[in-house]
Design a binder for these strands. Structure first.
Ligand SMILES: [Mn+2]
Ligand SMILES: [Mn+2]
Ligand SMILES: [Zn+2]
Ligand SMILES: [Zn+2]
Lengths: 120, 120
DNA sequence: GAATGCCCTGCAACTGCATTGCACTTTAGC
DNA sequence: GCTAAAGTGCAATGCAGTTGCAGGGCATTC
């Protein structure tokens, strides 16, 4: 099952949600798919994306992610038309000036708009 | 009830969630508080913040927000210790380079780390 | 002052997504 | 082949958000 899920992820250009998997693998159990994603995430194969759509999405990690540390510090793009979420590894997150006393850790940056296939 | 909620919001330095309100106004109904926030948001009084904590938080808008358009294009900061979320209106979101064909709309930028009261 | 209508409130119920427990099956190691 | 571990399926739960509906306050109108 996990191999099938991994194969599916490799073919996607956009991030997938659990319900996406559920729709595609309609014969498989929801929980199995859920745990597959969780395991992949733990092992550093995929990273999760909270794009504000209500459902967490997952995408394959770039090379160099380890179980200890995910460095998915790239921008994510959520298309408001097709509701797909894309990783934009080329668009790095710039440094943000913080007020005195604040120390930065992770950053979550999600842009919204229309993607290249949805523009008209 | 709404006046009480508004009064409460005015006294906060951090964004509040629905359950925060629920805890404070323990005699009021959850739904009434929920709808108060929704009404405030519609009218341009508050803006909602998705900080990734699982619960949407709300904070008063800066001057100039209208029912039609919220311009809360500032950075939000989520403290991983006290789990409070702060608006950082001084930290503007820089422009992000997008790939060809992508057009930008809203941006959600949440930084995580420790706030000025939680640093040790 | 009674009737009408609107707005606010409270109760109940429902949805969607995430998560866990437990039993069963399959796989891998010996 | 036997045994332990890993993977899977089913059930149930939790939590945040949301909606429908009915009752109550209040002001306007006749
Ligand atoms: Mn990504
Ligand atoms: Mn804000
Ligand atoms: Zn699109
Ligand atoms: Zn803090």
């Amino acid at each position: 099952m996990r191999l099938l899920v991994l194969d599916y992820l490799l073919k996607q250009s956009a991030a997938v949600s659990l319900s996406d998997l559920e729709t595609y693998f309609h014969r498989a159990d929801r929980i199995t798919l859920y745990r597959s994603l969780k395991t992949f995430e733990e092992k550093g194969l995929v990273h999760s994306i909270d794009d504000g759509s209500g459902a967490v999405k997952y995408a394959l990690c770039p090379d160099g992610c380890s179980p200890q540390e995910h460095h998915d510090l790239h921008v994510h793009f959520f298309c408001t038309r097709c509701r797909e979420t894309f990783c934009l590894p080329k668009s790095r997150i710039p440094d943000i000036a913080l007020p005195e006393g604040f120390s930065a850790g992770e950053v979550n940056l999600v842009m919204k708009g229309t993607c290249n296939t949805c523009r008209g």
